[in-house]
């Protein structure tokens, strides 16, 4: 596997002199054409990993290849293979979008006859044609992100690194960016390594997800795999009369593992899946327990994160709901929550 992997990482470590072990021995492998979502809270070590894989930061130990090249010994080849949009969209406020692309194209060694054409095409691709000749200082956050993406694509890289590409974007810009990333993987076979703090994003976009916390990968797999690890859905029932909590618990105890939440509310696992919901409703009806709310919880990446790290992911919940891009057979819709 590792011979043909687009990104292959073994026991990668980065220690900062006065800081923590930001990346603490991670292993991962990304296949060509795959979108790999690297999910973790602030300070988890996402950016540090990206900086190492893009050759901007030497690892303390461990090894990694990107596009088949060693990130330490073959930096130049790695850089020629990859495109990267790092966490801070490092743009020059004084230059226009087009000037950025032309500079990048020159430095990437595109023939002078191709540069304008390439710049124009990329500007159109990311929807910046109209703003192309305005200074970047006047761009919105979303426009900067899109320009950043275009800059990463100038030399047609095979592998794309995106460090939190949608942080701070509004739902429209976010879904547009998702669309574009999905399209790059689907149509151009580009491998994408994407970091994010948003579960929705990883869930919607990534073929495979690695969850990183305190520099270690605590879980890895496809979103369905990860959710399956957490197990079955559960249902939370709150009776109208809190006094009925005991009765409720008694009625539901036959289904699976059960938890009392206070105010009479009860959560019960459904090992048999959502189908058991109908049975629950019937039982409650027969026992004449009046129900105030009845909520089905599908296992989500939130639960995965909670289960693996014992903490809730900051930023979960407040991330806006966006339709997932369509088109790749392997990808599922957003979880129905």
């Amino acid at each position: 596997m590792s011979g043909s992997a687009a990104i292959d990482v073994e026991k990668l470590v980065r220690e900062f002199r006065k800081g923590p072990r930001a990346v603490d021995g991670i292993d991962l492998s990304v296949s060509p054409g795959e979108i790999y979502g690297f999910l973790g809270p602030n300070g988890a070590g996402k950016s540090t990993t990206v900086l190492m894989l893009t050759t901007l930061l030497p690892p303390t130990s461990g090894r990694a290849t990107v596009g088949g090249y060693d990130i330490v010994r073959q930096g130049a080849q790695v850089r020629a293979t990859i495109g990267a949009a790092l966490q801070e969209a490092a743009l020059d406020a004084m230059l226009t979008g087009r000037e950025h692309l032309l500079l990048q194209a020159t430095l990437q060694g595109l023939p002078s006859t191709k540069r304008r054409q390439r710049a124009g095409a990329l500007l159109e691709r990311v929807g910046l044609t109209e703003a192309a000749d305005r200074r970047v200082g006047g761009y919105s956050g979303g426009m900067k992100r899109r320009l950043d993406l275009a800059l990463a694509l100038v030399h047609s890289p095979r592998i794309l690194f995106l460090d939190e590409p949608t942080t701070g974007l509004d739902p429209q810009s976010r879904s547009a960016l998702w669309e574009e990333v999905a399209r790059l993987a689907r149509d151009e076979g580009m491998t994408v390594f994407l970091t994010t703090q948003y579960l929705e994003e990883a869930d919607a976009l990534a073929d495979r997800i690695g969850i990183i916390d305190h520099g270690r990968i605590v879980a890895e797999g496809t979103p369905p795999q990860l959710k399956a690890e957490i197990g079955s859905p559960s249902v939370e029932v709150t009776p109208t009369d809190p006094e009925l909590g005991d009765r409720l618990a008694e009625l539901l105890s036959g289904f699976g593992e059960m938890r009392r939440n206070g105010r009479g509310s009860v959560t019960v696992q459904l090992p048999g899946g959502e189908a058991e919901l109908a049975e629950i409703v019937r039982i409650l009806d027969r026992a004449e327990v009046r129900v105030q709310t009845l909520q089905l919880h599908q296992p989500s990446l939130d639960d995965v994160f909670l289960a693996k790290t014992g903490r809730k992911l900051e930023g979960s919940g407040d991330s806006p709901i966006v339709e997932a891009p369509e088109g790749r057979g392997r990808r599922r819709r957003r979880r129905g929550g």
Binding site: A80, T81, D92, L95, E99, L103, A105, T106, L107, Q108, G109, L110, P111, K114, Q117, R118, A121, L122, E124, R125, V154, H155, S156, P157, R183, D187
Partner: peptide, 28 residues
């Protein structure tokens, strides 16, 4: 497919010469 077709970039291995690079950065 709605996006326009992009011309493929030239070989990335062909890097610009020192003078060309200096001029590009200097221009900026």
């Amino acid at each position: 497919e709605t996006a326009i077709d992009l011309p493929r970039a030239g070989h990335p291995s062909r890097s610009a010469g020192l003078v060309e690079q200096t001029l590009a950065v200097g221009r900026r």
